[in-house]
């Protein structure tokens, strides 16, 4: 009998290939683990430095020249004020644009132009938005270093994120729902308002929360706008100057004393907790409502 397959030859050929495969597999696994490890080191390091300083006094004190008396109160309230501008502005403008692009716009060159433009805006560095805000809102509209100027700048910065998220959400609403609504005699706007939006709103909210958490963490546009690094008063109108969490962290990080770097870490914990809470809400909304469809 002729042996068509030489067992030894096959083994000799396949052994090193399988070996190489597993080497590469462990290399890829190691790279993935490395990323997770870096994330863990970052968190542990910040927690170890900041946790001892994180107490009620830190949360309720205004910034101070003495690190042991300094706190994030002014900065936290400033961030909340800024969000009070960013949330309604981005939501109305972002969802509005998404509805127009998905429901009304015909596939014309103009529509394609808007869409290309949005994806290009998403790639513009945040520091350039800072320059836009400085010229347009701070100087031309004479809003100065106010909550409104910073809030509007941040809104423009995160607008592309929320538009794209809302577009995807609206696109994923099944067409049957729209047709059923038309079939019942509803008009276009009624269909959008009563059928499309309620169905798409969980995904839209998820995208909106992600966009807003980006606005909370962004520092560069605020620095370029000239938002003060050191401020004791909290704003009482939208036209008052303010400072925000990342600005406060930036201020503390830049100081040479070790104590200030430790309270910078404590400030970072506050910022990260805020972001984690927001993201958890986003994940919760997505999980709770995605099952229904």
């Amino acid at each position: 009998m002729v042996r068509l397959i030489d067992q030894n030859k096959v083994t000799k050929n396949i052994q090193p290939r399988i070996f190489r495969n597993s080497i590469y597999k462990y290399f890829f696994l190691a790279a993935t683990t490395l990323c997770l490890l870096i994330l863990a080191v970052l968190f542990i390091r910040v927690l170890r430095q900041g946790l001892p300083h994180l107490d009620w006094q830190f949360l309720t004190s205004t910034p101070s020249r003495k690190p042991e008396e300094a706190g994030v109160y002014t900065a936290f309230i400033g961030t909340v004020w800024m969000m009070a501008v960013v949330i309604p502005v981005t939501f109305v403008l972002g969802v509005g644009a998404a509805i127009y692009l998905e429901e009304y716009a015909k596939k014309t060159k103009f529509t394609t132009f808007i869409e290309t433009n949005i994806s290009n805006l998403a790639g513009v560095p945040s520091v350039v938005y800072g320059l836009l805000g400085l010229t347009l809102f701070a100087r031309a509209f004479a809003l100065g270093q106010s909550v409104l100027a910073a809030g509007l700048t941040m809104s423009l910065l995160v607008l592309p994120v929320i538009i794209v998220a809302a577009q995807e959400a609206i696109r994923s609403v099944p067409n049957e729902l729209r047709e059923a609504s038309y079939g019942m005699g509803a008009t276009k706007w009624t269909t959008i308002y009563k059928v499309v939006l309620p169905t798409a709103i969980p995904s839209i909210l998820t995208g909106a929360i992600l966009a807003i958490s980006r606005a909370i963490g962004e520092t560069a546009p605020l620095v370029v706008l000239g938002i003060p690094l050191f401020l004791i008063q909290t704003p009482s109108t939208f036209f008052d100057s303010f400072t925000a969490l990342p600005m406060q962290i930036y201020n503390w990080t830049g100081r040479p004393q070790a104590e200030f770097q430790e309270i910078a870490a404590a400030g970072i914990i506050v910022l990260l907790v805020l972001l984690i809470v927001l993201n958890s809400i986003a994940v919760f909304i997505r999980n709770k409502f995605s099952k229904k469809l």
């Binding site: 990323c35 870096i38 994330l39 970052l42 390091r45 910040v46 992600l210 958490s213 980006r214 909370i216 963490g217 962004e218 520092t219 560069a220 990342p246 962290i249 930036y250 990080t253 770097q261 910078a264 870490a265 970072i268 910022l271 990260l272 972001l275 993201n279």
Partner: peptide, 12 residues
């Protein structure tokens, strides 16, 4: 990792 504010990376 992409969502962490850049100020945190700077500090780190």
């Amino acid at each position: 990792l992409a969502g962490i504010p850049t100020i945190v990376y700077g500090f780190f």
